[in-house]
Design a protein around this nucleic acid. Structure first.
Lengths: 351, 351
DNA sequence: CTGAAAGCGCTTACAG
DNA sequence: CTGAAAGCGCTTACAG
């Protein structure tokens, strides 16, 4: 299939050595204008580009990056990825995307080798850098073998991890977690007069869920709001989860007037549950979402949500990695304070 | 950074030649049990894996695939991709994802080099196969330079294109288009008594939009239903587009009783528009969506949508490519007839 | 400014 | 069963 035209053919047809062809290709050492032109003509004629395998072997770089995500169909990760890929492409890198399908549930049930398989694959491919956007790294309790694998990965190739800092691993960690958003959201609901606020969605044992729950409890306490176990229902990050979790809270016997949901998909499920209980938003229940995936303006009701500026995070992370690859000094930390975008799903308490 | 342990070190430490190491690695020629064991021990000790760059140079394969999509944040493509990636991973391939950000609008406005840049990158990377899931290939009028680029790509590397067949290009084409779904949807709405049915969303000049519009007009004619220019409003594939397009139809002066929307995101926008006009679903307007992205069960109202079995498409396409790479005969065509999943957003006409 | 040659890390006939 | 050697397609000192 491949025409397999190589530098040798180009050299022959232009009547120069392969060294000279290489030089006009890489523009590294001065070449006389006329030879350069002659060689260039032949290169263009065949649309010749050097074989990156051969180049990579010598230059020890592949101009390829690896990105590891648990679920590319989750808007959180697809947004992040598209920023990463775009910046990478601008800088001449292509990106291998690994979709590990990691979830805390499947992990607990014993399926735990997939991520490490991907780590190995990434290592094998000799990529120039790696971004780990989620997975087991997000768990509260990270397994030893994962830590080992991550350590091996990170000591072989520049790596940026989106998640909390782990000791003794030579990665750059970018902490996406920001409980301040939860605090903001709850204070906002309290200011509207809400006294009983539920918390919907997210997997237990996952760091972001637990730390948001912490912030939730802490802020309720601080504001002297009622905090009951039945106000919290967790499960996972998708619509179905939001639905079932919200139902559980709505049916718990003690009525809440507001719900805080892990993200916009969970929120959509919660809206369905609220509707099934013949309640209205925000009339009966105010709903505030924590991760803005969609433009709240076009949902029904228009959804109040915390914008975590995921696009900025993506751009920051890829810049960190690219700089690291080029040996540039680390950048200053960037502020990703979430911003509460208020629409009509939240309003004054009516109880 | 890289330990850069090579086959030479393994050979030295095991006291054999590199040829022998290569043999135990690839299990290709019989090696005596004892040497094999000795070598394997050293390999394990260093977690050694052969450098794929060197291997690729000789074997002329990289165990890497390229996938080109216009927008990975679109659920249509992220679902497709996750199926492709999973199957590829199972077969030992990793996948380079190229997000071309192609849209008919940006294309028309002159930004037209991005996709071909990606084609070149894919070629440069010497991938073993390519899947093109969308982009300029979806336009009614495809530019000559794109055709040239695609021809060059496809004659160098096995390629599978999701889209309609183009002449004289050595790709495998998988036609995703299936107007039968539109026909089904309109017949269904007609059977509920709807006489005036609007069509919302999608970009003009894009093949899928135009062919769905054709099917729409054809079916209206066949069923002797009213067909007016103001019943159609197009724009793009996202929520905002569904919102503005639906508003346009709702405000056109002639009331429709049903809307057909290009996909679930367009539908969500349309729901918002309907709500803004103080109309209800399905009381005043029935809504049927054409591409099921979400589980309709968890939306409000529960959304009737055509399931195009995108996951099956993804699995089919990757199998086609993998078979093609291995020189296996082409498979039989697979039936992707869309299935209408009926929920509560559609109901009897009340006018 | 240009060429001959070594070498990147592997696989695979070719001999033994 | 095993080793020496050629070769995959490049880049880059080293000479001129």
């Amino acid at each position: 299939m491949d025409k397999n035209i190589t530098i040798i053919q180009i050299a022959e047809e232009s009547g120069v050595s392969i060294a000279t062809v290489s030089r006009v290709l890489n523009n590294t050492v001065p070449v006389s204008a006329k030879t350069k032109e002659r060689v260039q003509k032949v290169i263009d004629k065949y649309h010749y580009t050097p074989n990156p395998l051969a180049q990579g072997l010598i230059l020890k770089q592949t101009k390829t990056l690896g990105v590891i995500v648990p679920d590319i169909t989750n808007p959180y990760f697809s947004t992040l990825f598209s920023e990463i890929e775009w910046a990478a492409h601008q800088s001449g890198y292509s990106v291998i995307l690994c979709n590990t399908a990691f979830s805390a549930v499947s992990f607990a049930s014993g399926e735990r080798r997939k991520e490490e398989t991907y780590f190995q694959m990434i290592l094998d491919k000799k990529v120039d850098g790696v971004i780990i956007a989620g997975g087991q790294i997000d768990l509260c309790e990270i397994g030893d073998s994962y830590i080992e694998a991550l350590k091996r990965l990170a000591s072989t190739v520049p790596a940026v991890v989106i998640g909390r800092k782990l000791p003794d691993i030579p990665c750059t960690f970018v902490n996406k977690e920001n409980d301040s958003g939860i605090v903001t959201a709850i204070r906002y609901l309290a200011s509207l007069g809400h006294k009983r606020i539920g918390f919907v969605g997210g997997e237990r044992e996952v760091y972001i869920t637990e730390s948001r729950l912490d912030a939730y409890h802490r802020t309720l306490l601080e504001l002297k709001l009622e905090d009951a176990p039945e106000f919290v229902a967790t499960s996972d990050y998708y619509m179905a989860d939001g639905y079932h979790a919200a139902l559980q809270i709505l049916d718990c016997g003690t009525p809440v007037t507001a719900l805080l949901a892990m993200n916009d998909n969970v929120s959509l499920g919660a809206l369905r549950a609220i509707s099934d209980r013949l309640l209205s938003v925000p009339g009966d229940i105010s709903l505030v979402s924590c991760d803005r995936f969609y433009d709240g303006e076009y949902l029904t009701p228009r959804l109040t949500s915390l914008d975590r500026h995921n696009d900025l995070l993506g751009r920051h992370v890829i810049k960190l990695l690219l700089d690291k690859i080029q040996g540039l000094p680390a950048q200053d930390a960037v502020d990703f304070s979430p911003e509460l975008v208020i629409w009509e799903s939240s309003g004054p308490a009516h109880l």
